[in-house]
Amino acid sequence: MSQDTPKKLYGLAAEFTTTPGIYHAAEKVNEAGYKWFDCLVPFPVHGLDRAMGVKMTILPILVFCGGVAGFLAACVLQIFTNSLEVDLWALVPVVGYQFDVSGKPLLGAAAFVPVAFEMTVLFSALTAVFGTLFLNKLPMFYHPTLKHPALARATDDRFYLVIEACDPKFSKAEVEAFLSTLEPESIIELDA
């Protein structure tokens, strides 16, 4: 069946064996104006993201917002459950569970610090982890680069530069010629 339906091309992958190899290749691909390309590497190669022209992630801002949300949530939780004493519309009494311990103030700001701190850290950390997964669109259990058996070495000892077919500048012959000028170990065609 695979023979009568021609497979769609996902992109072309150039295989490198060294970090300088992939680093300089990524620089050239970025300079050549390709937008839809990626490097598959077994560990974060220092400076490769900048060479590829990757913009700084917005993750720190998300984490900050997460921290603020955690802090506010902790304040609301503690004040609402322990200190609150208001009459809603002067009619409905809303009273927290007030512990009277040696006449200490119900709204003791100092006593609320530890929980507020912990919840700030907790919410920030949850945002950092799940924010990364979300921005990276993970979990994603199916991907053309995961399908090709050769590219399994991207998590071991090889470095791959993939130019995707959806790039506006993509034409198979041109990209193949361009990639071979970067002196890769091999060029691999990836099916979509």
């Binding site: 974060p44 490769l48 993750l59 921005l135 259990f141």
Partner: peptide, 21 residues
């Protein structure tokens, strides 16, 4: 492994998240 494929674009955010954590 949630479909990790070693993409440098992923590593970029991952490294940032690791530093923040």
């Amino acid at each position: 492994a949630v479909g990790w494929r070693g993409s440098m674009r992923h590593w970029h955010r991952y490294e940032r998240a690791y530093l923040l954590l």
